[in-house]
């Protein structure tokens, strides 16, 4: 994958004689990837994210590449004299959108997060969860090349967490890069392309545990199988991000098996299902979808005692938390 940003021997300390928060960080940030950063509290995860976001500059080392970026903080402040929609429109313009486009996307994202009813509410009057939705919408409406999420899921209700999961998958499917930190080990399980761990200010690439890889047969999260038929004579798409002629570029590292009558079965982590469907349907020429089903249990069940949130289960009754408050 082409690289979007590179960190070479990056170190950061606050103050001339302060202790090093990060040391000797080497990291290549590829295009169209989902990177997870792990680590215990106070190890320098947030500092690393701030360096990636460009809020902070390294004390030593080099960062190359300046993608269009957006950042979501863990806690979003309410003390600003704007309405939700007003703030998002301002931020959309700062991200380089026109006023009309910024307002349109602001409304769209508030609606996706079930906060459309709060568009005219002042930020100061929002609940913590709703103001976090505004923070997330601020970053997503920019469709950034690099999205940096610092525990962005904190405070969101279940419905909104799932919307954010899917939005992240969409961003990656569209060629964007997402770097995230979250304390929930199941967050986007099976969807991350790489995992890193910050230990004592150093960044260590994590060995892929069985069951943590994005690629065939290993995802631990809920999975979805899509049965689709390509245009006549289309080459069977092989392997991750399909480069084969006639095959759309597939998000989520789909596992592909031949199905009946020349169709193919694509199995992906559930968060990527929308993005995969979109990729198949918008391919030129488009693919025909025959069926979408929940995949049978993960290849390597991690722990039968902890069931997953049924992301892929039909959820006919809306979550009460999702409904906009009057």
């Amino acid at each position: 994958m082409p690289e979007r940003m590179r960190l070479d021997g990056v170190g950061r300390r606050y103050g001339v004689r302060g202790p090093w928060v990060l040391r000797e960080v080497h990291l290549t940030v590829p295009e169209g990837a989902l990177l997870r950063i792990e680590g215990t509290n106070g190890t320098g995860k947030s500092t690393l994210l701030r360096l990636l976001a460009g809020i902070d500059r390294p004390s030593t080392g080099r960062i190359t590449g300046r993608p269009r970026r957006a950042y979501v903080p863990e806690r979003f402040p309410a003390a600003m004299p704007f309405t939700s929609a007003g703030y998002l429109t301002h931020l959309g313009r700062v991200h380089g959108l026109t006023s009309a486009e910024a307002a349109r996307r602001a409304a769209e994202w508030l609606e996706r997060f079930g906060a459309a009813g709060h568009a005219r509410t002042r930020l100061a009057e929002l609940s913590k969860g709703t103001s976090q939705k505004v923070a997330v919408a601020q970053a997503l409406l920019a469709e950034p090349e690099l999205l940096v999420l610092d525990e962005a899921w904190t405070g969101l209700d279940r419905g909104a967490r799932e919307v954010l999961d899917r939005a992240v998958a969409e961003r990656v499917a569209d060629g964007g890069t997402v770097v995230f930190v979250d304390h929930d080990p199941q967050r986007l399980a099976g969807a991350a392309d790489a995992r890193y761990r910050v230990v004592d200010g150093r960044l260590l690439a994590q060995e892929e545990r069985p069951g943590a890889s994005a690629y065939p047969g290993a995802a631990t999260g809920p999975r979805v199988t899509i049965e689709a038929e390509g245009p006549p004579g289309a080459a069977p798409p092989t392997g991750p991000p399909g480069t084969t002629a006639g095959a759309p570029r597939l998000p989520g590292g789909a596992e592909i098996t031949p199905g009946p009558d020349g169709a193919f079965r694509f199995t992906v982590p559930a968060v990527h299902s929308d993005a995969l469907l979109r990729a198949l349907l918008t391919a030129r020429p488009p693919w025909h979808i025959r069926a979408v089903t929940t995949a049978p249990g993960p290849a390597v069940p991690p722990d039968p005692a902890t069931p997953y949130a049924p992301d892929s289960a039909p959820d006919a009754v809306p979550d009460p938390d999702e409904a906009p408050h009057p």
């Binding site: 460009g54 979003f76 402040p77 700062v94």
Partner: peptide, 16 residues
């Protein structure tokens, strides 16, 4: 005037 977290968002978008 801008709270630090909001400033981080704008600084990411436009540069500190």
């Amino acid at each position: 005037n801008e709270p630090p977290a909001a400033r981080s968002c704008t600084a990411t978008a436009a540069g500190p």
